[in-house]
Simulated assay, not measured.
Amino acid sequence: MDNGFSVEFLGNPDDQTKRIPSLGEIGLNNFAPYIMNRIMARWNSNLAEDMKARDVTTVKMRALAVLNVSSSLTINELSVFAVTEQSTMSRTLDSLEEQGLVRRVPRADDMRVRDVTITDEGRAVFEDVWPIMYNDMCRMFKDIDDEEYRTFVTTLHKILRNIRRHDI
């Protein structure tokens, strides 16, 4: 079965007849998860540095970003979209709510479920940090044209579908 890889060291994980290459044979610079981790660690570090002066942590920024484009989400949904543990998101929302940046409202049909929405104040904070996020992204994709970017995002979506545990 063809797995779609053109690189010879990537094989079909279901084929038990082939030898699995060592990480040394693949090399860290060809091991995509390693490269993705390096990129995201640098991205998060840069953003954390930029957000510090605004008293916005990376998790707060992610929550505000997601809520800025979503009308309302549960804590579990927000945790998935903001890529953080539910317990961390819960503590983050406590802080954001104390700052007046989000609102948690019990659902009328199920009081156990709370919908989280961004307030006008939260939207203003996000609008303040958005140019920083956008400029950091543009710097990250410097010298990458529109077609390369679209292809890259398409590939990332395929990878996400392959490893996804949530429907969202």
Rank of each mutant, 00 (worst) to 15 (best):
M1H: 07
M1K: 10
N3P: 00
N3Q: 03
G4E: 04
F5M: 08
S6T: 10
S6Y: 10
F9H: 10
F9M: 05
L10F: 14
G11E: 01
G11Y: 01
G11D: 01
D14A: 05
K18A: 08
K18N: 06
R19Q: 04
P21M: 00
S22N: 05
S22L: 08
S22E: 05
L23A: 11
G24W: 08
E25D: 09
E25H: 04
I26R: 00
I26Q: 02
L28H: 05
N30P: 11
Y34G: 05
I35D: 04
M36A: 12
R38N: 01
I39A: 02
M40D: 04
A41G: 01
R42F: 00
N46L: 12
L47C: 07
A48Q: 14
A48I: 05
E49C: 07
E49H: 14
D50V: 08
D50A: 15
M51N: 14
A53E: 12
D55E: 15
V56I: 15
V56C: 13
T58V: 15
T58H: 15
V59F: 06
V59S: 09
K60M: 15
R62G: 07
R62I: 09
A63P: 04
L64P: 07
L67H: 02
S70P: 04
S71K: 14
T74Q: 12
I75M: 10
E77A: 13
E77H: 13
E77P: 07
L78K: 12
Q86G: 06
T88W: 07
T88Q: 14
M89A: 13
S90F: 10
T92L: 08
L93P: 04
E97W: 08
E97G: 07
G100K: 09
L101F: 15
V102N: 00
R103I: 13
V105L: 04
R107S: 14
D110N: 03
M111T: 09
R112Q: 13
V113H: 11
D115V: 02
D115M: 06
T117K: 07
I118Y: 01
T119Y: 00
D120Y: 04
E121S: 06
E121W: 00
G122M: 00
R123H: 15
A124R: 06
F126S: 05
F126T: 05
F126L: 11
E127P: 04
V129C: 09
P131R: 03
P131C: 03
D136N: 03
D136W: 00
M137R: 03
C138V: 09
R139S: 01
R139L: 00
K142Q: 02
I144P: 02
I144L: 06
D146L: 09
D146E: 15
E147A: 10
E148P: 02
E148D: 15
Y149C: 03
R150A: 13
T151R: 06
F152T: 00
T154D: 15
L160A: 12
L160S: 12
R161N: 13
R161Y: 12
N162R: 04
I163N: 05
I163H: 08
R164K: 12
R164T: 14
H166G: 12
H166D: 12
D167H: 14
D167L: 08
